[in-house]
Write a protein that binds this DNA or RNA. Sequence first.
RNA 1: CGGGGUGUGGCGCAGUUGGUAGCGCGUCUGGUUUGGGACCAGAAGGUUCGACGGUUCGAGUCCGUCCACCCCGACCA
Length: 569
Amino acid sequence: MKQSKLFGRTLREAPAEAQTPGHRLMLRAAIAKPLAAGLYTWLPLGFRVQKKVEQIIREEQDRIGAQEMEMPVLTPAELWKQTGRWDMLEPITFRTKDHNGREFMVSYTHEEFVHLHAMQEIQSYKQMPQIVYHFQSKGRDETRPRAGLLRVREFVMKDAYSFDVDQAGLEKSYAAEYGAYERTFKRMGLDAISVESDTGAMGGDVAHEFQVLTDVGEDRIAICSNCDYRANMEKATRHMAGRSARADGIPARTEISTPGTQSIDALEASLRQPRSAFLKTLLLRDQAGKVVAVVLPGDRDVNEAKLRKILATGEVKFANDADFAAAGAVPGYIGPVGLKTRLLVDQGVEDRAYIAGANKKDAHLRDVLIGRDFQGERIDAADVRAGDLCPKCGVGTLAIKRGVEVGNIFAYGTYYSEKMNATFLSDDGTRKPFVGGSYGIGVGRAVQTIIETHYDDKGIMWPPQVAPYHAHVLALPVNDDDVRTKAEALVSDLEKRGVEVLYDDRDESAGVKFADADLIGIPLRVTVSKRNLKEDALELKLRSASDSEMVPLAGAGERIAEIVRSWPR
RNA sequence: CGGGGUGUGGCGCAGUUGGUAGCGCGUCUGGUUUGGGACCAGAAGGUUCGACGGUUCGAGUCCGUCCACCCCGACCA
């Protein structure tokens, strides 16, 4: 490919909108460009990377016996309504109607539709296990797209779906996908770790995310310093040290005057007590409007994902004024004592004296003790934080790191098949619902994550397996007949040998060509120059290396092909 | 959705107390160059400054409304 003809040019300065290193490089190197917020066009260089990433995913899915197919982007409303997801997904999906008024959703995911097909194609237990997958565009009306391709509103996802006869079969399929994911990410140069994740509003218990740890990630991951425990913050728990019985001798609660202190911050400042001396009480309402109070230690934050799961609701909001009145609470001075509502108490609340809101304006209570002054259901509803004890080994401490979720695997069992009455004929002659799982990888997000983790101050450093080209041939200067002739002969020789070549035939100065080569980041740079040709030689330089190597012109094609063949695939 | 920020040639930016738009890079032409973002000369490029409305003799500059984009948070398999 002649660079003079390449659709896409490099930028010396990145557009102001780009913040993360990978996003800036992606724009500067003409990998992908925005069309609108969260909508990106792959330019030719980036599209080649995307296709290579897809191919790796495809090979690893095929290896475990999964079969590729394709389902439409536009999906009819009826099935979504059958599983209850039409309404649930309303705020985050794109919808349209055909000219007859029939409703469609731009595919958010395809569980409903793959189950429909499974009912048609799989009739007997003898036909299972089955895994099918496709690469398809997904539409998600994210309220906040961010960081280039890391969070977008339309993206290609590989999603695979497994169908088994029972839970044991599902576990095998799940394990097969787990293994495929480990190989897939490794092959594309991503150091992804699996972490336990929340299953969200989709039911089921087992789910893992594959996370690449990097500061630009938007997920927070708790990692044990001692064992292999790793979990998304939405799911992470902590080991509770045994509660000491320090409840004896605590005096009866007394009211104290605290005018104008409506927050933990204000209390901390005016009473000169640590945050942990207070109880934080939140009045919340679920999707159905039911009100519940959650009591936490003053130094802990509520984890909404955990709370949603406990309340079995899709949404948790702060209560309104009427809810406060009904519960007998006063905003800013709410506390668990005497509260007329369901009370959930985080496990972090200890058997000791706390200062809590008095449910009266300008007043708090001192020496409030759980079990004596109020009762509640014990739950785990707080975020873990760095330094907490690991829930698995009880010895190590948790660190919190940021990660990009490049893939996830999810065992949902019969969640969909039961709602859809998607069944097969079992070996005992009865009809049973399919037991399934789904397995996703965001292709574009993976590509940008590769950049975010493979660059230096000069540009991208593509892992060879996913690089847009293998070799970047630079002719210096291109208007020298000898240089041009020999460079073109080399390019054609390399292409015959199956080496993918980007040939910089532009009439640019050496500085521009070297800088662009570094920026675009093709793994092997081959310089054909007047200077080198005096010695009948070429210069080879790996993007990842600091040194270069001179090789004789004769046989250079074979030498380069050999290097390319030695790379991982 | 809450908070903050930014909209001026393709990209990065400047634009004084309101007076009719400029710089660098890039692009085009000619020439000199050719191993780390070259040099000289000339030129094009803004439906006139995100949009609409207002104040004013006069608005890129002031006021209002809206839109777009970015960041933090919320949300989100």
